[in-house]
């Protein structure tokens, strides 16, 4: 677990629920990530145009711009192919998970999740 934040990977948390962001932030920081937050896809677009993160934890259903639309737009941004994107949603239907992967997510987390699941998925995504 890196102590020095200069070596830490930057994870952008995109979720309209403050509670989810709070829980995920605590787990991610414990795992050594530097964490930034956005409340919807629009805010997240503004964020990635300023500083492209290494990892994005992305909710599906959000106001302004949903996760799927954000991901489509992200991949067209300069450097937007680089972040590893993990969807994190209440959607648990295999067709929806397949759709998220086809659009460019590398992993998918079904809510509710705990620290073990998040760590397992980050490891599978190759960022832990």
């Amino acid at each position: 677990m890196p102590e020095d934040t200069a070596d830490a990977k930057l994870c952008l948390l995109v979720d309209d629920s403050r509670v989810v962001r709070k829980v995920a932030r605590r787990i991610l920081e414990d795992l050594g990530f530097e964490v930034a937050e956005a409340g919807d896809g629009g805010e997240a677009m503004a964020w990635v145009r300023t500083a492209m993160p290494d990892v994005i934890l992305l909710d599906w259903h959000m106001p302004v711009m949903n996760g799927l639309e954000f991901l489509r737009r992200l991949r067209k941004e300069p450097g937007g192919e680089r972040p590893r994107v993990l969807f994190c949603s209440v959607e648990s239907d295999l067709d929806r998970i397949r759709e998220a992967l086809e659009v460019g997510a590398c992993e998918y987390i079904m809510k509710p999740f705990d620290g073990d699941i998040l760590a397992s998925k980050l490891a599978l995504a190759g960022v832990l």
Partner: peptide, 24 residues
Amino acid sequence: QFEVQRGLSAHRLVEHFEMADEGF
């Protein structure tokens, strides 16, 4: 849902599992 999220990638989940009433 908890069991399929421990160690199993989403790609493998959609490739090797089907929806069931009680889970996957």
